[in-house]
Amino acid sequence: MQIKVTINEKMMELEAPYDEFLMDTLRRYGFLSVKKGCNTGSCGLCTVWLDGKPVLSCSVLSVRVNGRNITTIEGVQKEAREFADFLVKEGADQCGFCSPGFIMTVLAMKRELSNPTEEDIIHYLTGNLCRCTGYQGQLRAIKKYLGVV
């Protein structure tokens, strides 16, 4: 089915079979930042924004985003790099495979929560698994980025 979607603020017409999920469509159209870690809705690697809200692109049917707004990390590079700088300075960028989805969730959190506590941060990010870092360095980076202690 042909769908019209705004991706990273650009209108696009995409062709997607009814049973294709957004992650696969996005990768097919070259948004290669979107990673698949599990395909069961458990890992958060595939996180993109749908109308500004973080969702699992592995679990959203592409045909359902017809007429809506998608943001991938390619579309928020400036902001992503600002945060990535904190992450990298902590050494908390390991294999990086989980990072695009993780950063998209962090940036969504920044928009959604004001003055989050450590507990709020952890709660918001629980759906993002990372096997490399042990999460601590990521947390340090977020706190510095948000300026909370």
Binding site: L32, I73, A80, R81, A84, G96, F97, S99, I103
Partner: peptide, 9 residues
């Protein structure tokens, strides 16, 4: 670091 975390292919 900067490139792998921000989604470079």
């Amino acid at each position: 670091g900067m490139d792998i975390t921000t989604g470079k292919p």
